[in-house]
C-alpha cells in the first residue's frame, strides 16, 4: 500500500503568538515541531506499510525550514519526503492550502512513479485548529474521506476505519484511494533510532515549486484565499462556567437549551 502523509510544521508552544498586523502566526524565536496529530497519522501509515508493504511518502507545504519537520518524519519511518514551497503559495488559507496539496499529490505520484492508495492527515493542526485541510483535499481530489480515525484495517482492497465520535465509535468501510484524518492514538508514535536519525539527516528532500505542480495561480496564496481574518485574540480563561457531568450528549443539549432560554440568551 502506498501512502501519502501530509504534515505541517507548527510552533512548539501552547501560547501561540499572532502578529497583530498581519494576523498570521509568529514563528520567530519559537521552536518548531511536527504537528502532533500528523505524527499519529504518520505512525498509522508506517504501521500499515510494515504490515502490507509499499511506501510512505510525506509532504509539507511551508518555508525552507519545514524540511526539519520532514527530516523528523524520515527518521520515524517515512521513505521519502517532499517540500512544497513557492513564494506564490505564501499566505494561503485552508482552501488554497488544500488545493495546492492536492495538486502536489499528482506531482509526487509522477516523481515517485506510483499511485497513492491512501492519503493521511492529522485531524487538525494545533496552531490553526481548523481541521479543514484534510477534508478539503478529499473534495479537491474527489475521493472518499473519513475523519477522526483511531484505527485503519486493510482488507480486500478496502479499509475499515474506526472513527471517534462523541458517543463512541463508528466503523466505516471505504474503497481506495481515500483520504483519512487521524486523531490522537492510544499508543505513542515510535522514537527515531540513532541509525534512522543519521540516515534521515543525509537524505535529500526535493522541493516542488509552483511550476512543478501545474496549479492555477488564482487559487493559490493570499489571492486564492477567501478567508479574511478580522481580528484575533486570546480568550480569557474563566472558571465560573457551568459543567454538566455524567449526562448523555442529547440530554446535555436539551439542558443547555433550557438554560439558555431561562437566562434569556435565546
Amino acid at each position: 500500500m502506498n501512502i501519502l502523509v501530509c504534515i505541517k510544521q507548527v510552533p512548539d508552544t501552547n501560547e501561540i503568538k499572532i502578529d497583530p498586523v498581519t494576523h498570521t502566526l509568529v514563528r520567530k524565536g519559537v521552536p518548531s515541531i511536527v504537528n502532533p496529530f500528523d505524527t499519529y497519522a504518520l505512525e498509522v501509515g508506517v504501521r500499515l506499510k510494515e504490515q502490507l508493504g509499499g511506501k510512505v511518502v510525506v509532504i509539507s507545504m511551508g518555508p525552507e525550514q519545514a524540511k526539519e519537520a520532514l527530516k523528523t518524519c524520515l527518521s520515524v519511518g517515512a521513505d521519502d519526503a517532499y517540500l512544497i514551497s513557492d513564494r506564490k503559495f505564501g499566505g494561503s488559507d485552508t482552501l488554497a492550502t488544500s488545493y495546492i496539496l492536492s495538486s502536489a499529490v499528482k506531482a509526487v505520484e509522477e516523481k515517485e512513479g506510483l499511485k497513492f492508495d491512501l492519503i493521511l492527515c492529522g485531524k487538525q493542526a494545533v496552531d490553526g485548529d481548523t481541521a479543514q485541510v484534510g477534508p478539503e483535499m478529499a473534495e479537491h481530489l474527489d475521493l472518499p474521506q473519513i475523519t477522526y480515525a483511531l484505527d485503519i484495517v486493510y482488507e480486500d482492497d478496502k479499509i475499515q476505519v474506526k472513527r471517534e465520535c462523541d458517543d463512541g465509535y463508528d466503523m466505516i468501510t471505504t474503497t481506495l484511494p481515500a483520504v483519512v484524518t487521524v486523531v490522537k492514538l492510544p499508543y505513542e508514535p515510535r522514537y527515531a533510532t540513532i541509525r534512522t536519525k543519521m540516515a534521515a539527516k543525509k537524505k535529500e528532500i526535493p522541493t516542488l515549486t509552483f511550476d512543478d505542480l501545474k496549479t492555477d495561480e488564482a487559487y493559490c496564496g493570499l489571492g486564492g484565499s477567501p478567508t479574511k481574518v478580522k481580528g484575533t485574540y486570546t480568550p480569557n480563561r474563566e472558571k465560573n462556567g457551568v459543567k454538566l457531568n455524567g449526562v448523555e450528549a442529547n440530554d446535555a443539549g436539551a439542558q443547555l437549551a433550557e438554560w439558555l432560554q431561562t437566562n434569556k440568551i435565546l
Binding site: 522514537y191 533510532t193 540513532i194 541509525r195 543519521m198
Partner: peptide, 21 residues
C-alpha cells in the same frame, strides 16, 4: 526501548551491531 533505539551500542561500528557513533 533503548535497545531498539540503538542506545546500548552507541560507540561501536555498525558492522559489530553498534550505532556507529
Amino acid at each position: 526501548k533503548m535497545a531498539e533505539m540503538g542506545l546500548l551500542g552507541i560507540p561501536f561500528p555498525e558492522e559489530c551491531g553498534g550505532a556507529g557513533m
